[in-house]
Write a protein that binds this DNA or RNA. Structure first.
Lengths: 355, 355
DNA sequence: ACTATCTTTGTTATCGTCATCAATCGCGAG
DNA sequence: CTCGCGATTGATGACGATAACAAAGATAGT
């Protein structure tokens, strides 16, 4: 009876289940169904349950496109402008961002640019595509010219994972200082006293901040920072090789190397391997970011995990909110959202030799 | 003049330009505009030009959501079910897939699963989300149980980058055999005679096929394959370490190592580094796939480039076509699409020593 | 008991686009 | 000169969901 009617829709794939089908099945008006699926107030518990039962019975799925058509709330076009194809980073951002954007019925556009000249062209392409907002992952999150160009065109901007948030630009990030501090404390707690640090690209904001966190941790433990145990890097694997060679070939060898990202930590691992230095027995190596390379290399890296997927989700949520507010005529204040990092201990760290 | 009008709409963000605005601006009916923007036939050149001018003048953007609402053509929900978070692979797929899906107004859903039990749960989640089709990147592209489960639920399936296409399942891939053959030929052309090979995970289909390509290249050049120069790997960095150690510590050392993916090639690089073997002077190392790690390590890897972004784009296009055909009541034949690979020479390869 | 107020539910109109069908135009054949 | 036919173009309604409004029912206050 009703059973056969329930499945009728499902048998005819050319016609998806609509809100009206659910309404008919539940014997209510379609508006009530709409209210239930949106979780709107003013629906009696009994009614809500009845409708939800019909939703389940018919396996109803909201038609996000139709919803976006009527409720102009979020037909937003959100661009992600990236330059450094640090792939793992990007894919994680997208995993989170995509999930959220499909919920909000907004569109994600990807645009890649190379070099400074490329940025201008990429911005033009995004504008031509009619974006309402743009998310800038590192390192573009710190590029004032690009931010200004986008804002001049009336586009909402959000900086993702910047270390130095700007007052007038929304951002989603972790606290790089606290992250580096936590890692340093952990190394100290393991018994390390001779800790070297590999800095990142001086052009990028996390470089300085992470070093400050490291320095604070050392100071806190009453440990001196030796100049020859601070190596300059560029966040690349190659620069990590050079930095690690410098640190491991010096007069005195540290018992731990804290690289300010995973790529350079992986390079340090490779150099140690080349010097027949066992990790973690003779040397502890740790990184920052917890990108794919952290679990690719052997031993796997102890590192600071950034919840990148969650940050991508949050970024889309925030920027969609701002876009909506702006479309409604407002001038929303920049929103700064701080996410929690996690220190993850894997195989590359341990107590110093002889302890 | 018109300049100020062009920017007018940017000033009033609450009301996007619609097809009707364009129609009014051009002094035609909205249906004509619709035809022009879709590139439909039966529009006179003069009219087309006039409308296009108005589109440009108003910076009109199609409302994909509204389009999807009316023309049910492509409100398709397409899932990407991945297990191995080989991040660079995934992000490239998404870059391509996302671009295409926003053009087609279809939705991309990501679902990750771990292990065999996870596959079942992930399939359930995708079905609950009401997907019309699922794209399976490696290694899931070869999982018969998962494919069957999805198809049993009436979902269209497409295997991405499988090495052994199934007759009854659509796929987008490169020719792994020809890729390995091309690389082997190149090594031979460089003068190498003593070539070692690192196999991949025996569970994955590319493993066998790439080895066959290598074997064919060696046979073609009249070179023997020494058993102790064939190492077993698992496509992971760690397995590559073990394999490379075995190859480089043997009685006789090869002048080239062809690893069947980039992660293992990177590991071979690290081992060579540890043995003070200079790459590419004393040893050539090359990989397969051209994932992010290929350009992360130093020297950068010579490898076979898979056009993954293009493959993602193509995958979405094909599966959307099939879904549409199925919704129209048809029973479309599986479509097998072969993409072109490229051999990319970077710093890790060169002529053998003494040549 | 009766009205005022609030809560819950239904009705109507609307979003931007496209399918369908009707109307118009141009041009050559009879 | 008129008819007919194909090629263009326009008018109307539908898609699925929701906002705004209206109606009905519940509750309370006098």
């Amino acid at each position: 009876m009703t059973g056969s009617r329930e499945t009728r829709r499902a048998d005819d794939p050319s016609r998806p289940v609509t809100i009206h089908d659910v309404a008919r099945h539940a014997g209510v008006g379609s508006m009530t169904v709409s209210r239930v699926i949106r979780g709107a107030a003013n629906v009696s518990p009994a009614m809500r349950e009845r409708v939800e039962a019909s939703v389940r019975a018919l396996n109803y799925q909201v038609n996000v496109a139709a919803r976006a058509t009527r409720a102009r709330t979020a037909a937003a076009r959100i661009g992600i402008l990236y330059s450094n194809p640090s792939a793992s980073y990007l894919s994680e951002i997208m995993v989170g961002g995509l999930e959220q954007s499909s919920k909000l019925a907004s569109h994600l556009l990807l645009e890649r640019c190379e070099g400074l000249a490329g940025q201008q062209a990429a911005v033009k392409r995004l504008l031509a595509a009619g974006v309402d907002g743009v998310i800038l992952p590192p390192p573009l999150c710190d590029s004032r010219p690009t931010i200004n160009r986008l804002r001049a065109a009336g586009v909402t901007v959000l900086a993702l994972a910047t270390a130095r948030p700007m007052d007038d630009v929304s951002c989603v990030r972790i606290d790089d200082f606290q992250g580096a501090l936590a890692m340093t404390r952990r190394l100290v707690a393991l018994g390390h006293r001779d800790i070297a640090f590999i800095k990142g690209d001086p052009q990028h904001t996390p470089t300085e901040v992470r070093f400050e966190g490291f320095a604070a941790g050392m100071a806190e433990a009453g440990l001196a920072i030796r100049d020859d145990w601070i190596a300059e890097g560029l966040f690349t694997y190659r620069s990590g090789l050079a930095a690690a060679e410098q640190l491991l070939d010096g007069a005195r060898r540290p018992t731990a190397i804290f690289a300010s990202n995973d790529d350079m930590a992986a390079a340090a691992l490779a150099v140690a391997h080349g010097r027949q230095i066992a990790v973690p027995q003779d040397l502890t190596v740790c990184g920052f970011d917890d990108t794919a390379v952290a679990t690719t290399v052997w031993p796997e890296l102890t590192t600071i995990h950034q919840p990148i997927a969650a940050m991508g989700r949050m970024a889309v949520t925030l920027i969609a909110d701002q876009i909506r507010a702006e479309k409604a005529g407002g001038e929303p204040a920049p929103d700064h959202h701080l996410m929690k990092f996690t220190l993850i201990e894997r195989g590359s760290s341990g107590p110093p030799p002889g302890l």
